[in-house]
Amino acid sequence: MLLKHWMLGVALVASAPWALADVAVDPLYGDDPQARAVLDCQADYARRYAGAVTSQRATATEVAIAAHAGCIDAFEAFIRSRVTAAGEAERMQAAMNPAAFVEHHRQRMRDYAHAHTLHVYLRSTADF
């Protein structure tokens, strides 16, 4: 009985860093709920595909691109939220050139979410 408890404890301690990585504050967007929604949606897509039994496997990049398409609603909600989440200096930039402001945030999140999805997918595949 004592050995079972010890083994369970070792398993929990070994899995703790991975569990904490999923709930930790994002280094780029902090606690922003809109950014978290995009990253969580794409990570969920990557995990589901990594665990799926399919006859053909997509590359990690193909999974990340498909995850973006599957999470486009969360992505667009994030883009719309940028003006309200912006600081004073960013609001001035948005007022002077709104198209450039939106494009900057669109590209920044797309690149970041793409890299995040690649990371989750590669970490989730058994044959990594």
Rank of each mutant, 00 (worst) to 15 (best):
R47M: 03
T61D: 00
S55K: 04
H68E: 15
L39Y: 15
R57Y: 08
C41W: 01
A52E: 02
L39R: 13
L20M: 12
V63H: 01
R57A: 08
A14I: 07
D22V: 13
A35K: 10
A46L: 06
A50L: 06
V13L: 15
A66L: 04
C41H: 14
A43T: 00
R48K: 01
P17N: 03
A19G: 10
A60T: 01
L20V: 08
A60M: 06
A19Q: 09
A24T: 13
A60I: 02
L39K: 13
Q34P: 07
P33A: 06
A58D: 09
A35T: 11
A60D: 03
S55N: 05
V38F: 13
Y49S: 02
R47L: 04
E62R: 00
S15L: 10
E62L: 03
L39M: 15
R47N: 02
D22W: 12
A50C: 06
S15P: 06
A52K: 01
S15V: 06
V25T: 15
A60H: 02
A43H: 05
A37R: 15
A35W: 15
A35L: 10
Q34L: 11
Y49V: 10
G30F: 12
A50P: 08
V13G: 08
V53Q: 13
E62I: 00
R36Q: 10
H68K: 01
A19F: 10
T59R: 02
A52H: 01
D22C: 05
Y29H: 05
V53F: 13
H68W: 00
D32Y: 13
V13N: 08
P33K: 12
T54F: 13
Y45I: 03
A43Y: 04
A46D: 04
P17D: 03
D32Q: 13
W18R: 07
A19T: 08
A58K: 04
T59F: 02
A37G: 11
P17G: 02
V38C: 14
V63Y: 01
A60K: 02
I65L: 14
D32V: 11
A60Y: 01
V63I: 06
A66R: 09
V13A: 15
A58C: 04
R48P: 00
A21Q: 15
G30N: 06
S55G: 14
A14K: 08
S15N: 06
G30L: 10
A64C: 07
D44A: 09
Q34C: 07
A14M: 14
T54W: 03
D44H: 00
L39S: 14
A16C: 08
A37M: 12
A19M: 14
Q56K: 09
A67C: 10
D44Q: 03
A52I: 02
G30A: 07
R47P: 00
D26N: 15
I65N: 06
Q42P: 08
V13P: 11
A60Q: 04
L28R: 06
R57L: 08
R48I: 02
L39I: 15
Y29A: 00
H68A: 00
V13C: 15
G51M: 09
P27V: 01
A35Y: 14
A67Q: 06
A50H: 03
W18C: 04
T61Y: 01
V38S: 14
D44E: 04
L28Q: 04
A35Q: 11
T54R: 02
A16H: 05
W18H: 11
A35M: 12
S15H: 05
P27S: 00
